[in-house]
């Protein structure tokens, strides 16, 4: 679309436009669209819409199979869904050794959902925003995982689960001990006792950072990868006729990234939860 525009202003305008979420917020008792800079009480409508929509697609696909699941000869579609289920089940069982009814479904949801959200990246960058603009919607960011709120939202849910599982497996005292008594064990008696508070404080800072780094790295990895990929798609779209082979090449490469990032997000979620449950 920006092929008609030539100036640097047009190009940067095009990029900025494509990276702008459709936002709604309430300012002074009125709904305001896309003038929400710095306002926490803002909903990124496009991110929410696409993520929930894709989540429903996931639920719909899998539920339609699960409702009619038979142990007899499976249909092609059931076999495909089952192969995904078995893949997830195998991966989770290899990593997470404790018994849990939550981890495997969580991993399945995360994997397929993130995969679908990443997959939106392969739709040519202008199609949906252009269609939306015909309907009078000014901004539309199609790939939910290029929105830092979405990836953080998921990683915070995982973070809550990490804390929940740590406390469930080790108790509140175990959780506190994990934060304070590692990696340097404070002395329990003798003259060294004076240094115990210092060591505990040191441990606490270290372990807190390590704990907080988990959701942060989880979300930023996904966000960074998808955002960069989307940005390159946008840049390629600026190239005129040359974009065709380049877009194709990058899209093929992106199929790998889409799958890989979804898998990494799932895998790390499982690993973090396994660490939360297991004794060191």
């Amino acid at each position: 679309m920006a092929t008609e525009g030539h100036g640097a202003q047009d190009a940067s305008g095009y990029i900025v436009h494509h990276l702008q979420n459709l936002q709604v917020c309430r300012v002074d008792g009125a709904w305001v669209w896309n003038q929400c800079e710095g306002n926490f009480w803002t909903i990124n409508v496009d991110s929410m819409f696409f993520s929930v929509f894709l989540g429903l697609v996931f639920i719909g696909l899998f539920w339609s199979v699960a409702r009619k699941a038979t142990s007899g000869v499976p249909g092609r579609f059931q076999a495909a869904i089952e192969s995904i289920i078995e893949f997830i089940d195998k991966t989770v069982n290899e990593t997470f050794h404790a018994k849990s009814n939550v981890i495997a479904p969580l991993a399945l949801t995360v994997f397929v959902w993130v995969f679908f959200m990443n997959l939106m990246d392969l739709i040519p960058v202008d199609w949906l925003p252009l269609a939306a603009s015909k309907l009078g919607i000014e901004y539309l960011k199609v790939v939910p995982t290029t929105d830092v709120n979405v990836t953080f939202g998921m990683s915070i849910a995982v973070f809550v689960l990490i804390i929940f599982y740590t406390i469930k497996a080790k108790g509140v005292t175990g959780f506190v001990a994990e934060l304070t008594l590692h990696p340097i064990a404070p002395p329990k008696s003798g003259i060294g006792l004076i240094f115990a508070p210092v060591i505990i404080a040191f441990n606490f800072i270290l372990e807190s950072v390590a704990l907080l780094a988990k959701p942060l790295s989880l979300s930023l990895r996904l966000f960074g990868n998808m955002f960069a990929g989307e940005l390159i798609f946008i840049l390629i779209a600026l190239l005129g006729l040359w974009q065709l082979p380049l877009h194709f090449g990058w899209a093929v490469f992106h199929i790998l990234i889409v799958t890989l990032q979804a898998f990494i997000f799932m895998m790390l979620t499982v690993v973090y939860l396994a660490l939360a449950v297991e004794k060191h």
């Binding site: 800079e37 990124n44 991110s47 993520s51 996931f58 639920i59 899998f62 009814n101 949801t109 939202g153």
Partner: peptide, 25 residues
């Protein structure tokens, strides 16, 4: 910037996970 979307997304995720846990898996 970080907005309410984050909480919405977290809730959506928990709902999907719960549904998956109850009716799909």
């Amino acid at each position: 910037s970080i907005t309410l979307t984050l909480i919405g997304q977290s809730i959506a995720m928990l709902v999907f996970v719960l549904f998956c846990m109850k009716y799909i898996w």
